[in-house]
Each structure stands twice: as C-alpha cells, then as structure tokens.
C-alpha cells in the first residue's frame, strides 16, 4: 500500500512536466513553430472563460439559493426512509445529496461530519469515500456545455445523476463491508 501510494504521488508530480516536455520536444522535432502555435492556441483561453460565465451564473445561483433555503434538509427528509434500506447512516444523506450539486458545499459537510463523528468512524469513512468517488455533476454540465454554447443538454444531467446515485450507493455498500 505504501509503495503504491509513493508511485502514485510521483506519477502525479511528474505528469505535467512530462507532458510539457513531450509536447514541446516532439513539436520541435517535427519543426512546428512552437511559440507561434502556443500563442495561437492560448488566445482561445480568454474566449472560453468568458463564454462559460452565463452558464456558470445560472447554475451556481440556483444551487446557492437551494442550499440557503434549507432545500438539502428537505430532500434529506424525503429520502430518509430509503437510507435504512441500504444501511446508510442518516447523517450521511445530506452529503450524498450535496455531492453532485456543489464541490465546496460537500467539502463543508464532509469536514463537519468527520469533526462531529470522528475521521475514522463509519460516517467519516463513508462521507470521504463519497467525496472521492464522484465529480460535481451540475458544475461539469454547466461548464462543459457552456464552453461550446450548448443550451439543450438533452439526457446528460439525468444520466449523470443516475451514475452518481449508483456510485454513492456503492460507496455505502463498500464502506459497510470494509469498515
């Protein structure tokens, strides 16, 4: 386990310098005008950043309002009967609901749960596994589609949420098994 962790740590550290080296070395080898091409590509960065603003505002505003109103607590109450069914401690449910909505929000809930119940408690273990096992789906949908000006995302969000639900349920199951 320790050696695996060490390998992974080094891999993450060296990945970006290696990519930069490989791209530039191969570009130089192929006689690409690297500086000019870099600038040409980088120019788009600004446009993309500006393009996603309206999508990000729409999404983050709705999520912030929902959080401030206590909507998470409301949904937690609605889903509460299900938690017993899959052996999920009721305290973890708000974490599961927050995870696809907001990255910073779920960090907040996770930290709070670990402080109250202990990092190495089942609740702490489960909530941090949940955090590590999925992405913030709402944010990804807003930013990725926003970057190419797509307004109709079709079935992307429901399927993304279905995948999240599957991942979160698996986290509950695995954590109960491993703990």
């Amino acid at each position: 386990m320790e050696t695996i962790k060490l390998i992974i740590d080094w891999l993450s550290l060296l990945a970006i310098p290696f990519i930069i080296f490989a791209f530039l070395a191969y570009g130089g080898f192929k006689k690409v005008r690297v500086y000019e091409k870099f600038v040409e590509g980088a120019k788009e960065g600004f446009e993309v950043g500006v393009r996603i603003i309206p999508y990000l505002v729409a999404m983050l505003v709705a999520i912030a309002m929902f959080r401030a109103s206590g909507g998470i607590a409301l949904i937690s109450k609605l889903f509460a009967p299900l938690t017993n069914l899959i052996n999920m401690p009721a305290e973890v449910l708000p974490m599961a609901i927050m995870r696809p909505l907001s990255g910073s929000g779920s960090i907040g809930i996770m930290t709070e749960l670990m402080k109250t119940h202990g990092v190495d408690s089942l609740i702490g273990f489960m909530s941090s596994t949940m955090f590590g096992s999925t992405e913030t789906t709402f944010y990804v949908v807003a930013v990725y589609f926003g970057a190419v000006n797509i307004r109709n995302s079709r079935y992307a969000l429901p399927v993304g949420l279905l995948a999240d639900a599957a991942g979160l349920t698996t986290a509950v199951f695995i954590c109960n098994l491993f703990y």
Partner: peptide, 28 residues
Amino acid sequence: TAVQIAIGLIGVMALWLGLMKIAEESGF
C-alpha cells in the same frame, strides 16, 4: 463567485490550449 471562477480559469485554459495546439500541429 461564478464570474470569479470563470475568470480564474482563463490563465490555466490559455496554458493548456496553447500546449494542445502544439501537440495537434506536430501530430502528437
């Protein structure tokens, strides 16, 4: 916050899009 996040992305975006352009051009 949404605008801050978007603006914060611009620099990193530019860096990677620049690198990707080189990699595309070279056939990598």
